[in-house]
């Protein structure tokens, strides 16, 4: 046993001696090239887009490593504030009490009200939507539809889509009589597509994609304006939101360069591929 360990040690030494210059050379190179590490955390809506942008940025800047983590917009705010993350991802505009952070929009997203494709109701007023979500209207018959109870699909607490929806319609989450509470866009789309009496709200981009790919949902217009990536882009659609990268103070160095890149036309194809709307 003992002699084995000793001879093992002897054998290992030349290997270490050979590796040492390589390791040192590695350090030297690292000093010269543009290097750095960035950490992004936050919105699960923004995360896939940020990850794709980060991959492209890394490919152009071989010394840079950008780690993207998710957890929701609230986490993005908290982590950017505390410095746990260099950049937070937040899928809504900053609130007045978040003015200590600086927001940098990288894309826009709209929220579409969706119903099952077989639902004959083609338009709901803001008041009707409010009444449905408050539980005051419980059947489709009351809004000109068939004799069928309404299944109200709401978003889970902490989701920025929920906050944006509540803010737009002047509702409080405690007022909402939800039949189903869902987390992400795709879950919302699947829930509504699987229930002819359901009403829900999800990202316009995701809903538009699903509706054009034979998923049984339909997007309702809002205030007479059709819900589509086109109306979000030209600013007409009332229920839309920016997808933000947020930093504590003006971003410096690598963070600043990455944010400028994320806002540039170089990533518009990535933004479109995830069914969001590019900046301009």
């Amino acid at each position: 046993m003992g002699s084995d360990a000793v001879s093992g040690g002897r054998r290992a030494r030349p290997v270490i001696a050979m590796l040492l210059p390589l390791l040192l050379a590695g350090c030297g190179d690292g000093g010269k090239a543009a290097t750095g590490k960035l950490m992004l955390t936050g919105s699960s809506t923004v995360a896939p887009l940020a990850l794709e942008i980060a991959k492209r940025y890394e490919a152009d800047h071989p010394g840079v490593r950008i780690d993207v983590q998710t957890g929701g917009s609230s986490r993005g705010i908290t982590d950017a504030r505390s410095g746990v993350a260099d950049i937070g991802m937040v899928s809504r505009a900053l609130k007045p009490d978040e003015s200590d952070l600086v927001a940098h929009a990288i894309a826009h997203d709209g929220i579409a009200i969706i119903v099952h494709a077989s639902n004959p109701v083609t338009e709901l007023s803001a008041d009707q939507i409010r009444a449905i979500y408050r539980g005051q209207i419980a059947t489709w018959q009351a809004v000109g539809g068939p004799k069928r109870p309404i299944t109200v699909v709401n978003k889970a607490e902490g989701r920025s889509t929920l906050e944006l929806f509540l803010q737009h319609f002047g509702l409080a989450n405690t007022q909402i009589h939800a039949s189903v509470v869902i987390g992400d866009n795709e879950q919302g789309i699947k829930t509504v597509a699987g229930n002819p009496g359901a009403i829900g709200y999800v990202s316009v981009g995701a809903a538009e994609y699903a509706a054009t790919h034979e998923v049984a949902i339909r997007l309702l217009p809002l205030d007479g304006i059709p819900a589509s990536t086109v109306t979000v882009k030209d600013g007409r659609f009332p229920l839309s939101r920016p997808l933000n990268l947020v930093t504590r103070g003006q971003p410096q160095g690598l963070a600043g360069d990455f944010i400028a890149y994320a806002r540039s036309a170089a990533v518009h194809d990535r933004v479109r591929s995830l069914y969001f709307v590019p900046l301009d």
Binding site: A47, N185, E186, Q187, Y209
Partner: peptide, 10 residues
């Protein structure tokens, strides 16, 4: 989870 829930077309 991410492909099913966050990525349209995933």
């Amino acid at each position: 989870y991410d492909l099913a829930m966050n990525v349209p077309g995933g």
